[in-house]
Design a binder for these strands. Structure first.
Lengths: 250, 250
DNA sequence: CGGCGACTTGAGATCTTTCAAGCTGCGTGG
DNA sequence: CCACGCAGCTTGAAAGATCTCAAGTCGCCG
């Protein structure tokens, strides 16, 4: 995937939630930056280090994470192509978290200076960007609720539903079959569980809902069962999918 | 506490992270809205219901929460006087979460229309507001990490450290002794634990760090021990306290 | 005085982790 | 072409953390 199409995906995301003028869209589409190829496991942003750019995912899968004193990690957000992983850093350039490539990835590091120029020329875009980070926070709140109050199976099912719907909304795949090549250890870090337990949970979901994770793809045979196991209601994602409203995913 | 002083607290918060002109500050200080007194347990915003105002805490303690299908709640954020509990709802007026008064509280419901007028007159304020919600997201990410990866004692200690520092930063109390009248059940909802377990954890922290929660106040005898038990590093809160940098809280 | 909400305590059940070992597939170097 | 090593996955069994259920205490308010 090229710069061009990643920026277009990003624009599509923004436009799905904010009404932009043609000039604003044109201005957005001129965005560019340094293209960086990151191997699996590469830390693209370190916690507590100021950044001067925001990271647009072009290809692969990124994670925002927090690190405990004993080295354990908790992933707090996943980012797929078209996501700006840290638009946050534009208003607040000293992140408390880090960003890591979970799989071999390509990102576009868009300088804050370009973004600032854009926002001063088109103030309305500030609101659109802000809105994007608010949706990000909505997802984060849902994660908190799931990790805090749902058991391993529900939690895992929920994350997979979320990823599926987001992949589909971004036009990258179908929600029942999408390419995401994370390891079980990474999944464990996202769900606040251990590798061993994730392994058993996935095995249980395979039996219950025909879940298949292999060769870097997630396949879901019985979507409805998975979604109902997860108590999944997509409204917190604020995506509009072509065929239906959020409710129907339950 | 009056409207006046709550708005002033809010302005102080904003100014601690964004450089505002005198005009902008003057404009902010004209903010007003409907003053509402909420009894303990009152839901001020319901999940999935659009709102036309943002909620400024004047007195008391609010919680943002998410509700599970079986009725269990997870609190995802706490808000003390001077906090705007859902500035988020300005760019995105349909929240996926609710807001509840954990103790008898007073809030000022500031109409989105006033805020929008303000932002179009002073576009720079948009960035300042955005920044405020980004800090909110930083706190949320830290909660996710704690709930996902820290045990009950660490988690509880961390939340109390956070609250203390925030109260102190807001000028409402000292971090070692502050008025917060939540129940153990509410604390449990914030930490993803059960009431019974919170009870035992608090008892353990009382022994370990001289923690005292009673009569609506939290008292901490040995702050350093509590903070080190929590692995607490205040930098994610983006507050600057008079005497010292974030590190010293560890 | 009675009742209610919040707090406390005990004991057993359940979920999740830990530790340990073995398996599998794949890339690399001999 | 094969052997090796490594990373990721799988499985078992015991330990540990947390939850559930149940009962009882405490303090406040009507």
């Amino acid at each position: 995937m090229q710069t061009q199409s990643a920026v277009e995906l990003f624009i599509r995301r923004i436009c799905s939630r904010s009404l932009l003028t043609e000039q604003e869209i044109d201005a957005l589409s001129t965005l560019s930056g340094r293209m960086v190829v990151a191997p699996r496991g590469d830390d693209l942003v370190l916690p507590g280090h100021a950044v001067t750019y925001s990271t647009l995912v072009v290809r692969g899968l990124l994670a925002r994470f927090d690190q405990m004193a004993d080295g354990k990690r908790q992933i707090t957000a996943l980012h797929i192509p078209g996501d700006m992983a840290d638009l946050h850093s534009l208003p607040s350039p000293m992140p408390a978290w880090g960003i890591q490539a979970l799989v071999p990835s390509t990102v576009l590091q868009v300088p804050h200076s370009s973004l600032e120029r854009l926002l001063s020329a088109f103030p309305n875009l500030t609101l659109a960007f802000w809105r994007d980070t608010v949706v990000d926070a909505s997802v984060l709140a849902k994660w908190t609720a799931n990790i805090g109050r749902a058991d391993a199976m529900t939690r895992t099912a929920h994350l997979l539903c979320e990823l599926g719907v987001r992949m589909e909304a971004q036009g990258l795949a179908s929600r029942t079959n999408f390419p995401v090549a994370f390891t079980q250890a990474q999944l464990a870090d996202a769900l606040g569980l251990t590798t061993v337990h994730i392994n058993r949970t996935i095995a249980a979901l395979r039996v219950a809902c025909g879940l298949l994770i292999e060769k870097g793809r997630v396949g879901i045979q019985d979507w409805n069962r998975l979604a109902s196991h997860a108590n999944f209601d997509a409204s917190y994602l604020f995506v509009d999918l072509p065929d239906s409203a959020g409710q129907s995913y339950q």
